Amino acid sequence: MASTTVPDAFHALEVLRARYARQLPTRLDELTGPARGTVDLPLHVVWSGLRSFDLERPRLRMSLYRTVLAEGLHQDLVTYLNRDLLIGQWPVLRTLISRPIREVWENAFPELTARAATTA
């Protein structure tokens, strides 16, 4: 019996990349979410566990961004993510998200990669 693990894994990564790419904003400036306060995510983004995130608490802010990047639709990205917060925490955030998400965002927005390189 021949193994199809490598082609199947490659196909799965491509499907994920395509899914994440469809959700992207055109420009990072479209990310006009709050920079302060508390954010309550809807059930279609986070269906179990913590749904309310205090942006003043770095761990909670990072958790919010990880969740929205992974599960959010286009409108969720522009509603809940803030351009400046995303850029500021990208050097750490990029290590906490999946490779397909990281690659899609960094390919679309080179300023994220530049920011990560200057803080490495």
Score class of each variant (00 low, 15 high):
Arg61Glu: 05
Leu28His: 01
Asp76Gly: 13
Gly49Pro: 09
Arg36Asp: 07
Asp29Glu: 15
Ala21Glu: 15
Gly33Ala: 01
Arg19Gln: 10
Asp54Cys: 02
Leu41Cys: 14
Val92Phe: 02
Leu81Asn: 09
Asp76Trp: 11
Arg51Gly: 12
Pro34Tyr: 00
Val15Tyr: 02
Val15Ala: 12
Thr119Lys: 05
Leu85Gln: 13
Thr4Met: 11
Leu93Asp: 01
Glu71His: 07
Arg66Asp: 03
Arg36Asn: 05
Arg19Pro: 06
Leu85Gly: 15
Glu56Ala: 15
Glu106Ile: 13
Leu41Tyr: 09
Pro7Arg: 03
Val46Leu: 08
Leu85Ile: 08
Leu73Phe: 15
Leu13Val: 14
Asp29Ser: 03
Ala114Asn: 15
Val45Leu: 12
Ser98Asn: 08
Glu14Arg: 11
Pro91Phe: 00
Arg99Ser: 08
Leu69Val: 06
Leu43Phe: 09
Arg51Ala: 07
Thr4Pro: 09
Trp90Phe: 12
Leu112Val: 01
Ala2Asp: 14
Ala18His: 08
Ala117Leu: 01
Ile101Ala: 11
Leu55Gly: 09
Leu24Glu: 11
Gly72Trp: 10
Leu60Asp: 06
Phe10Leu: 12
Arg59Glu: 14
Ala12Glu: 12
Ala9Gly: 12
Leu31Gln: 00
Pro58Leu: 09
Trp90Lys: 02
Ala117Gln: 01
Ala116Ser: 01
Leu81Lys: 10
Asp29Ala: 03
Leu50Ile: 08
Asp40Pro: 11
Gly72Leu: 10
Asn82Ile: 01
